[in-house]
Write a protein that binds this DNA or RNA. Sequence first.
DNA 1: TTGTCGATTAGCT
DNA 2: GCTAATCGACAAC
Length: 197
Amino acid sequence: MRLNQKFYQKDAVQTAKDLLGKIIVRKYYGKTIKVKIVETEAYCGAEDKASHAYNNKKTKRTAPMFKEGGHSYIYLIYGMYYCFNVVTASENNPHAVLIRAVEPLTGIKQIKENRQIKSSRTEDLTNGPGKLSQALKINKSLDGCSLVENSSLYIIDGSAENFEINSSPRVNIDYAEEYKDKKWRFFIKNNKYISKS
DNA sequence: TTGTCGATTAGCT
DNA sequence: GCTAATCGACAAC
């Protein structure tokens, strides 16, 4: 079942943990790809120095972060990769969860078409934020859309499997001073699709 | 209008 | 471990 509005109305840290094990559904040209979320990072409100929305900085790029929980926030990084975030909490309270890695479930043929990599390892297809966006054909046209209403990108419940959640400091945010050591990166323990050990 | 640089990745040493 | 690739958002002028 699709996750409802209420699921996203929590702070980013709580939602980041709750999103582990959930399924992202991506549809285009009549094709469907499903992947399981195995790694996330929380970016938490105006106080978080690692966040693009630190100090309530609202710009053209960060505007979706100020929407109500349940919208997407997608931006271009390093001129070549997109990062996919899920906006959480309430309107004008800029929380977001970066999806860092997923495990392919269905549509692996489509994913391989989108990725075009030399490596034959399935693990290399989606084990990083830029990789999974490429794999799912996620781009600016989906920026700011509602994951509760949109029919080509949304998130559903996972299976009732049990797993253990690990946490660690977030990746590549050395500039964030006292916030860089916060353990706001969450991942499923022992899953081989996470981006780094 | 211009210059800087990033919540990354792949390929090479 | 190191670094090029490649773009638009952002801030300074």
